[in-house]
Amino acid sequence: MTDHASEPGGQPESRRDFLYLSVGLFSGVGTVLAMWPFIHSMNPSADVLALSTTEVDLSPIEVGQAITVIWQQKPVFIRRRTAEEIQTAEQTPDADLPDPQSDADRVIKPEWLVVVGVCTHLGCIPLGQRSTEPRGDWNGWFCPCHGSHYDTSGRIRKGPAPENLFVPKYEFLDDNTIKIG
C-alpha cells in the first residue's frame, strides 16, 4: 500500500467502525435474503403440490385383490385383505419382526392395507400385487432386487430391507373412498 492511503478518513474510529459494520451487515443480510428465491425455486412448485393428494375409489376392489395407484409419482399398494390375512397379521408376535409394529398401528380399517410400494432397502418395487407374482414366504410382497420378504401387513420379515413398507397419510372420505396425502 502506498503511504497516503494507509489511513483513509480522519473520522473517530468508533463512528467509522460502526458504519463499516452496518454496511457489512446490510450487504450480508441482503445477499442471504436474495439467495432464498433461487433456492426456493427448486422446491416443489404449485402445480406439483396440487397433485400431492390422490383420491381412490375402493368399491371395485374385491376381497383378496390389490390395486396400485400413483401418489406423488410413487406406487401405492392397496390390498383388500382376507380375514385369514388379517388374522395372521394381527397375531404375529413382535419378536418375529425386525421392525416391530402392530398391525393395528398400520391400518385404519383392518380390511384395507395401504402402503407405499417402494422397498425400504434401495427403492425397488416389490412384487406381489398380482396373484401370479411371487409374494414371498409371508404371503405379502417380495422384492426381487435383493430378496426382501414382506408380510400381509407390509412388514419386513426377511432380507436386507431395514424397515416396514411405509404407510402414507390417508383418510377415509366415505366408506369407499380414501384420500392419500
Binding site: E7, P8, G9, Q11, L19
Partner: peptide, 11 residues
C-alpha cells in the same frame, strides 16, 4: 454505502 464512500474518500 454513500456514507462509507464519503468517509473513505474524505482524506
Amino acid at each position: 454505502l454513500y456514507a462509507t464512500k464519503r468517509k473513505v474518500w474524505s482524506s
